[in-house]
Design a binder for these strands. Structure first.
Lengths: 151, 151
DNA sequence: TTACCTGCAAAGGGTTTGCAGAGTC
DNA sequence: GACTCTGCAAACCCTTTGCAGGTAA
């Protein structure tokens, strides 16, 4: 499992390097450190969580740099952004990650992921019908989870 | 067409009245005026847009009341909230409105709606598989619209 | 009459911006 | 060496909150 993660991080680092070169962006240690941290995570995160995780690992960094780098990662499609129904944006890595949706419990705020193949068909449908080119997708169901339904 | 709107507004006003009574909320003129304004709209709106529209119609109201009333309308399911990729929340009426998704062009910011029947199947699927009870849904595709693809 | 609701203004929280110093190319 | 990037802090915008006066029940 660990070797898998290392391989993936190597790969996305390459992709990011290429992206930076092409866009005339500089290759700073902060940018690679943030990418690495994100790809070590298994789940969603907010900017604040990412920022604190890096501080905890004694990596000296500022919020502004995290915001700046996330923008580049979004542009390079290595990360996607989700705006759930709270005030802060949530992010996820994309490389080697399957397309999925989210269920959010409006009581306990839990976020549950689910895989779906039909989603892909819907996407193909709108691309065909509207001449729209889809870059990223957010499917979110809000409601009550199993545990909260019991109460 | 106009009679259709009037009928619908009468109907949702009744629904809202019942909701307010049941929840021991007061029936204030502001609340009904906001509901009416929303159901006169054809499309998405932000709090700020709604607020300004009401001011333009010489209805004296405050932002705080708009925020407060929107919460009640969400609770009564007469309005849904969408968090697109900008900072402000977007809202829509729900009554007599079909389930649909949104495509958002990341360049021109245009929001295009599309109907989809498959979405309902996905919803049924997660309800069955996860014991989750879905109350509302947001499906959003981000990408490039036909017009922006030309350039 | 008794809460609750409204309007106003200030506070709060996430994100962006401006600027000086550091680091990439 | 030029110019971008970083870190810090202040500014910004949307939303929430506190309080005094008004209003529905």
């Amino acid at each position: 499992m660990n070797t898998g993660i290392i391989d993936i991080i190597e790969k996305v680092t390459e992709i990011f390097k290429t992206f930076l070169k092409r866009g005339d962006y500089r290759q700073t240690p902060e940018r690679f450190a943030i990418l690495k941290e994100i790809y070590h995570k298994d789940s969603h995160f907010t900017i604040e969580e990412l920022y604190e995780d890096m501080l905890n690992k004694k990596f000296r960094i500022s919020r502004a740099t995290v915001y700046n780098t996330i923008k580049l990662l979004l542009k390079s499609n290595l990360v996607v952004k989700h705006q759930f129904d709270d005030n802060s944006a949530h992010f996820e890595k994309t490389f080697k990650t399957k397309q999925h949706g989210h269920m959010i419990c409006t009581i306990c705020k839990k976020v549950i992921e689910f895989q779906d193949t039909e989603l892909y068909h819907i996407q193909k449908g709108v691309e065909k019908n509207f001449g729209f080119e889809v870059h990223s997708t957010t499917l979110t169901f809000y409601g009550l989870c199993k545990d909260c339904l019991k109460n």
